[in-house]
Amino acid sequence: MASKPRAASTPPLPLFYRDPLPLSASVHAAWRLKEGDAAFAQDAAYAPLVLGELAAASASYPVVFAGEQAAPVAILGLEQRNLFVADGQWAPFVHVPAYVRRYPFGFIATRDPDDFVLAIDAGSDRVVQAGEEGEPLFEDGKPSALTLRALAFCDAFKSEAAATAAFSQALLDKGLLIERRADATLPDGRKLGLEGFQIVDYEAFQALDSDTLVDWHAKGWLALINFHLASLDRFRVLLDREGAAAVEGGAT
């Protein structure tokens, strides 16, 4: 579930982003953003999640934990493709992760580790660097309404990300996460395997001490763990979608 390997001297870019740049009224005064679709996410087999959307995401996708920080992610496909995007459109009636909805905007850290600036992916097909197409990012030297909305959304996302990290760290500290892999055989006989993720060990979860249970209940974490565990049944949905995609791909 890791990003494509890059040169050791180059830090990996966040998922989807190709050329993130901090926005500046003086440098990007003429830049605009045109309407777009979800085609940028069509090859993503997963998407990061934040705490406030975990319950909603669990109704649509398997929600698991990945990486050293045990970050929660939604599994979008069993291969390197998103089974919920077709012809640039996200499947109806399923939750679209906030990480996807904020793109092509995001935050970039400054030299101050506690300070961030709004950025945009200059590599996005939606970014227009000259001309009149799309909505302006700046007007009269000030952020436009579009940019202010993006700033508010990214700020809320950052706050949620901090809460998410605290939740994940608590799961790690209590030793609740165990490695798992998912194996499936498609109708055409192909075998697929997904590994590199963790789930909550139900028995260890049931054995939590009473003080922790009271604390986590007050924080809403117990419900989130139960949503996560219930979401694992969504692997069947992925298998069904993968099988349907294989049939469509083989149709003549």
Rank of each mutant, 00 (worst) to 15 (best):
V200L: 08
E248L: 15
A204S: 15
R32S: 02
V127E: 01
E203K: 10
T212P: 00
V127L: 11
A218R: 14
F105Y: 07
F157P: 05
F205A: 05
L171P: 11
F197H: 02
V214C: 04
A8P: 07
L148K: 13
D209C: 02
L51H: 05
D183P: 01
A30M: 09
K158C: 07
Q206T: 10
S24K: 05
A150G: 15
R32F: 05
D87N: 14
C154H: 09
A165K: 11
R234P: 03
L137P: 03
P113R: 13
I199G: 01
G131Y: 07
E179L: 07
V63D: 09
L171M: 15
F153A: 14
A170D: 11
A223Y: 04
A57Q: 06
D211S: 13
H95N: 04
A246H: 10
L172W: 08
A59Q: 12
A245G: 10
E139Q: 11
P113L: 07
L51W: 05
V85Y: 05
P11D: 09
D155S: 15
G52N: 15
V127Y: 02
A57E: 03
A41C: 10
G175C: 10
L229W: 01
G193W: 00
A29P: 09
L192V: 00
P113N: 12
A130G: 00
P97Y: 10
V27Q: 15
F153H: 14
